[in-house]
Design a protein around this nucleic acid. Structure first.
Length: 365
DNA sequence: TACTCGTGGAC
DNA sequence: TGTCCAAGAGT
């Protein structure tokens, strides 16, 4: 490959590029940082509660989607104490539509732990943060660095992309994670760890994008091995995800004459855990809609069309049947009536809102 | 390690 | 239109 003289003059693994420096990234960040609702202004002190709340919401979720939820949560629960004192059901309602609902349950559990075990203040150490519900390696490092100025390597999807490109790392994710974390630990600026973390994420979000990265605008242009080889879009390397079969099921919308909807609550754990749903069958690849058992004795009519929804790991197609029953009908065990006027504020995941809209003739498009 | 766990937007 | 993906965590 490379002869010994070349190796003697240039560090191994960096032929053709100069070394990246945190100061170049931070200078770029000082001019181009995104103004985000949860961020402190330059020179100001970041609020650990807001940092934590935003970091939980931003897990696998876009900045745009988080925006209105962050504002709503801050208005409902301005600090960790009032959040901890709120019923978890209210938190699930407020989280409805944002996805990954175990985050909401863990958010509430974390708030209670902060109050019970840390006097209502977020702990200022990586280890103590990591021990809290819903806080993993990434989020602990992010809170530690952004809110407390602790020099910890913050590695999210953005940083993985930036660093694997910078260093031409061919190892597929997630096996490459330890090497990425080690490289970030070398690169980071211990004088401005929070800014460095947010700068690497801003860089990945705005310049070092998955497709068509804007390398000409990058503060690390010339220091990136992937750019030098014109192979930016090949990184990070990821194992191909396997396709999953569509699952099928039936949903039943039961409306009473006095304007109420029959619902139940899903188990806390598992898919859509703790969220409200209309009764229905299990969902499976081999499901036969004709064999679905209605939740109540009534005249159901099968509605035209189906409701489709795509989860991360499988597509779903539901038939919808509706029955209208008399006022005062007793709900089956484990179910309850809610007024139709309260559907909007109920803890329905998006899938269930599609089902209800379909049955109410609101149109599905 | 590999799988589960939502949603909406970009291409 | 299907595929990928977005500030990951829990098991």
């Amino acid at each position: 490959m490379t002869d010994n003289r070349t190796l003697a003059r240039r560090p191994a693994g960096r032929q053709g590029t100069r070394a990246p420096h945190a100061r170049d990234l931070l200078a770029w960040y000082d001019r181009h940082r995104r103004a985000l609702p949860w961020r402190a202004l330059p020179g100001e002190h970041a609020d650990p509660y807001r940092v934590w709340l935003s970091e939980i919401m931003l897990q696998q979720t876009t900045v745009k989607a988080v925006g209105p939820y962050f504002a709503k949560f801050l208005a409902l629960w301005p600090d960790v104490g009032v959040l901890a004192a709120s019923p978890v059901e209210e938190v699930m309602k407020a989280w409805a539509g944002l996805g990954y609902y175990s985050r909401a349950r863990n958010l509430h559990a974390c708030a209670k732990a902060v109050v019970a075990d840390h006097g209502g203040l977020f702990p200022a150490s990586l280890e103590d943060l990591r021990a809290l519900p819903g806080i993993g390696d990434y989020t602990a490092a992010a809170i530690a660095s952004i809110a407390f100025g602790i020099a910890a390597p913050v590695v999210d999807g953005n940083v993985e992309r930036v660093v694997t490109r910078l260093n031409l790392m061919e190892t597929p994710l997630p096996a490459a994670k330890p090497a990425i974390r080690a490289r970030v630990a070398e690169l980071l600026d211990s004088a401005r760890p929070g800014d460095f973390a947010q700068a690497t994420m801003d860089l990945g979000a705005t310049i070092c994008t998955p497709k068509r990265p804007a390398c000409a605008l990058c503060p690390w242009t010339g220091a990136c091995r992937a750019e030098a080889e014109g192979r930016q879009e090949e990184f990070p390397v990821k194992a191909a995800r396997k396709a999953r079969d569509t699952r099928y099921g039936a949903a039943f919308v039961v409306v009473s004459a006095d304007g109420k909807l029959l619902v139940r609550t899903r188990p806390d754990k598992g898919l859509l855990g703790g969220m409200t749903e209309v009764p229905g069958s299990d969902w499976s690849a081999g499901f036969d809609p004709e064999g679905a058992e209605p939740p109540i004795e009534a005249r159901f009519r099968r509605l035209a069309g189906t409701v489709t929804h795509v989860f991360t790991h499988f597509p779903l197609e539901l038939t919808v049947s509706r029955a209208d029953v008399r006022a005062g009908t007793r709900p089956p065990a484990g179910m309850r009536w809610i007024p139709l006027s309260e559907v909007a504020g109920e803890a329905f995941p998006t899938l269930m809102r599609k089902v209800i809209a379909h049955a109410m003739g609101d149109g599905d498009r």
